[in-house]
Design a protein around this nucleic acid. Structure first.
Length: 413
RNA sequence: GCGAACGUAGCUCAGUUGGUUAGAGCGUCUGCUUGUGGAGCAGAAAGUCGUGGGUUCAAAUCCCAUCGUUCGCCCCA
């Protein structure tokens, strides 16, 4: 019985070509987020189970958490998201940190899911958060950052839509309709589902759960395109910084319980990938759970799986070159005598792999070609003597005799 | 957790109403001689037909279970 070569269900292997793509994407994320002054942090992949019990969605905790009891009897969970961890960290230094605090991380998370398109058991996520700003300017910045990321990856404004809502405004409206407590929670879920249902189906579901009077009022509220005041201010702020994809959408509520006011969700407008890409919002109550003075916070999380689906759907993924500059092909038994020359070239910044197989020249060339590396450097007796190396471009077939300095220049340009 | 489709060489797939030693293309490897790859020619390796049961004289083909993949639902990223 042989072992399987497949990775664990819902998890991915990153072969070099996959890792290259991931690196490309993560580098873009870092670049944008750092240009707004966010600082990178990280946290352990394991957390005490408790930090998820209070505010993470019920379903996530009960059915999707990877958890176990450690040898010391502690209940431990593999993190399903970053927000509780970062809240814990900020709370731990609540008094000493400088606000507004801008932090980000790119980390992996686990949820026990049934894998399908856009959703796996392990995914990577960018988290960016602002701590300590109550006003809507922080909400606007978070959305602006998300928008800038998409644009830096080549997306155009019409490729996605940013739907924004205010939970506070919504709850207030609901209360006016006489909706409270469990009924309110139920309505949340229904509203969240609205975009997936036809108007008729939605009305039907609504009437099953609410009195006719309440249902009518709710429908009217959801139909209203007039954003509440806070959303209105947010939208005009966004407009002023060039974010044109944002709109008011009263059906956006998001599943996580810790969101307290503004929530947003980014949708792909491509009909082939019509889905929520990622989202975020304000969660003013979470830091305070750790026994310190509460801290207003907004942030968002952007998952790599949905992001990559989005980029694929819009043909925004670049073809990436292998990192290695050249493969050195040795002609004859020169492995030792070539080393000092190779060391010199590497010191000048070249990324060089040596074919140390001792195979015939054509076999070495074939492998070099297959590896995807663009150049080959031939080193034989003649080259070592004359100190002129032969550089070959495998794509064009061009060959040039160059000194070490010229070679470095040629490969670095 | 629920529902559906699929699972044959490394990859993409073919395999007739169950019937001899299971096929193709691409890829891989070897050679076409000794300092030049991508093309060509010649040849080779490679599959207990996802796994385990069952039905049958006979199973890749039918049935059941299980694992995996994919797509929905739930939920969410």
């Amino acid at each position: 019985m042989s072992l399987s070569t497949q990775p664990y269900k819902g998890a991915r292997d990153f072969y070099p070509e996959d890792k290259r793509l991931q690196k490309y994407i993560f580098d873009k994320l870092r670049q944008v987020v750092e240009s707004f002054g966010y600082q990178e942090y990280d946290a352990p992949i394991l957390e005490p189970l408790d930090i998820y019990l209070a505010k993470t969605g019920e379903e996530i905790v009960n059915e999707q958490l990877y958890s176990f009891v450690d040898r010391g009897g502690r209940r431990v969970a593999i993190r399903p998201e970053m927000t509780p961890s970062v809240s814990r960290m900020v709370a731990g230094r609540r008094q000493e940190l400088a606000y507004p605090l801008r932090w980000y991380s790119i980390a992996n998370f686990w949820r026990y899911e049934r894998p399908q398109r856009g959703r796996l058991r392990e995914h990577y996520q960018l988290n960016a958060d602002i701590f300590g700003v109550e006003g809507v300017a922080a909400d606007a910045e978070i959305i602006q950052v998300a928008d800038s990321i998409l644009k830096s990856l080549g997306a155009k404004a019409e490729m996605y839509r940013i739907n924004i809502n205010s939970r506070v405004a919504m709850i207030q409206a609901m209360k006016e309709f006489g909706l409270e407590g469990t009924e309110l929670k139920a309505v949340y879920k229904l509203v969240d589902k609205m975009p997936k249902l036809t108007d008729e189906d939605f009305k039907k579901v609504l009437s099953e759960n609410l009195s006719a009077e309440k249902a009518t009022k709710l429908l009217k509220y959801l139909d209203n395109n007039q954003p509440p005041e806070k959303v209105d201010r947010l939208l005009s702020l966004l407009k002023s910084v060039g974010v044109t994809s944002a709109t008011y959408e009263p059906s956006v509520v998001r599943g996580l319980e810790y969101y307290t006011d503004i929530v947003f969700e980014v949708f792909d407008t491509n009909p082939e990938n019509a889905r929520a890409l990622f989202g975020g919002g304000r969660y003013d109550g979470l830091v305070g759970l750790f026994g310190v003075e509460p801290l207003p916070t907004v942030g968002f999380g952007m998952g790599d799986v949905t992001l990559q689906n989005f980029l694929e759907a819009h043909k925004l993924l670049p073809k990436l070159q292998v990192e290695t500059d050249a493969i050195v092909v040795l002609i004859g038994d020169l492995y030792e005598s070539a080393q000092s020359l190779l060391a010199q070239l590497r010191e000048s910044g070249l990324k060089l792999a040596v074919d140390s197989s001792g195979r015939k020249l054509d076999a070495q060339l074939k492998s070099a070609d297959k590896s995807g590396v663009k150049h080959v450097i031939f080193i034989g007796e003649a080259e070592l003597k004359s100190k002129k190396l032969k550089l070959k471009n495998l794509q064009t077939g061009d060959e040039r005799q160059l000194s070490a300095e010229e070679l470095v220049k040629a490969l670095q340009s």
